[in-house]
Design a protein around this nucleic acid. Structure first.
Length: 292
DNA sequence: CCTCTAACATAATCAACTG
DNA sequence: CAGTTGATTATGTTAGAGG
């Protein structure tokens, strides 16, 4: 699967990470409050800052050790930069969720919030939980007791009795409006790092006043709609690119050089930060990301 | 080591605002 | 009404907890 250990890649990743984190840190540290998240951040960021400095000497060991926290989002290797710590649900919580899932696998915001209150699990994680568990409904109910053996019966199996159509339209969470100044902060962060880890998202949450989960969604949407604007940004000139939108033109989209079809591996987008990459995409023809 | 699953990703789409 | 953009879904991947 992953080349993970091939020396060169790792090296590159490390290098890249350095510049990246250095940049992030300086601007972000000041505003950092460490309130709720301070256990995460104190570990994550402390390590980072000091690591960034001493890394050149200490090197890989440190790095490897802490990869769980740091991991960086090196576009090549992955979009993982310190996720939220994995929570272990209590059986009692699972019971509640499971019951709700069986009743309606598509809970709207209201139900999710009730569940959140009842279980003490944040609503956004409840939402994720349902996403993760609906798939189990499709496959094997797993508890049906009836092995049903390789369904393999004709093609006639009714594909999705689950398909949401059969359930009362889930009420969506009310759409929030993101103000101009909030957008500005987000865009700024986005241009530095398209894959903020949990700590970075939390920080943005504090600075913008938006919930972390909305920020995560914002980044997802943004990544999808702004395919990596390469334009060789010199790192310091991203100051005033805030309000203007990219105006469809130049962004060479990396999906062109995307790997062989078949490996579900997305090719690393080129990144504005590490100058020394060998990819050189060119090919400006196909930025068809807006229309059709 | 292997399995299970929370966290996270993309892609497509729905839908609320807004000009 | 069309375009923008926040919210949701399906589905695939990554990585931590625990057997």
């Amino acid at each position: 699967m992953y080349p993970q250990e091939s020396g060169t890649i790792k090296d590159e990743a490390v290098d890249f990470t350095h510049g990246e984190w250095a940049l992030l840190d300086t601007s972000q540290w000041k505003l950092y409050n460490m309130e709720n998240i301070n256990h995460l951040v104190s570990t994550g960021y402390h390590l980072c800052q000091s690591d960034v400095i001493s890394h050149s000497r200490q090197g890989e060991e440190l790095w490897r050790d802490k990869r769980e926290l740091i991991q960086n989002q090196s576009p090549g290797s992955q979009q993982t930069q310190a996720r939220r710590k994995k929570t272990v649900l209590k059986p009692s919580q699972i019971d509640v969720l499971q019951a709700s899932l069986e009743q309606n696998p598509y809970p709207g915001i209201t139900i999710r919030e009730e569940l959140a209150k009842e279980t003490g699990i944040p609503e956004s994680q409840i939402q994720v939980w349902f996403k993760n568990h609906r798939r189990h409904l499709r496959k094997g109910p797993l508890a049906s007791g009836r092995a049903l053996e390789e369904e393999a019966f004709q093609g006639q199996e009714q594909p999705q009795p689950w398909s949401q159509e059969n359930f009362p339209k889930a009420t969506r969470r009310k759409r929030i409006s993101i103000t101009r100044s909030q957008t500005r902060l987000l865009v700024e962060a986005f241009e530095k790092n398209r894959f903020p880890g949990f700590a970075a998202r939390e920080e943005l949450a504090q600075r913008t006043g938006l919930p972390e989960s909305r920020i995560q969604i914002w980044f997802q949407n943004r990544r999808a709609r702004h395919p990596v604007q390469n334009t060789s940004v010199p790192v310091n000139s991203l100051a005033d690119s805030l309000t203007q939108r990219p105006q469809v033109t130049v962004q060479l989209d990396q999906s062109n050089l995307s790997t062989v079809p078949g490996t579900s591996q997305h090719c690393p987008p080129s990144y504005p930060f590490n100058g020394n990459q060998t990819i050189l995409p060119v090919l400006q023809q196909a930025n068809s990301w807006v229309q059709e």
